[in-house]
Amino acid sequence: MEKDYIELKVPSNVYYLESVRAFIGKLSETLRFSKKRIADIQLAVDEICSNAVYHGSTCISSGILMQVYVNTQKLKIVVRDKGKADTREWLTPKRLEEIQARRSPTGESGHGLYLIKCLADEHNLKQNNVGGTDVTAIFYRKERTNED
């Protein structure tokens, strides 16, 4: 199967994230992920997009771009934001490590990136060429074995 590609552009407002979550849930259902895994994918996407709105956008029109790649092996989701030009608040792997080092179960924030790491089979953060961050989360369509 060739790689299929879906693109979704959303205003930088958490108001729209419910629709994004519904979309990725339905797609995951179509791809025959288990109910538990669909919940994981929806939560990871919610966390990535919430971070993009809160930390990667200067205003509602900044927008976030979700790129979805599907093939027989995996579902790959890339969420791109444009960053905050004033703070240069990039969520680099180093920053992820810093946030995780400070994270506490009794804390009220800082759990989102940790959850993404727990839920996705693979994840990656990198600074993009539009001044923001690309967060990638990959979910394999079958349970991986030691042979994979």
Partner: peptide, 12 residues
């Protein structure tokens, strides 16, 4: 059916 870390943080 769904809760994210923002809501969990609020409850904590």
């Amino acid at each position: 059916n769904h809760i994210n870390s923002t809501a969990v943080g609020t409850l904590v």
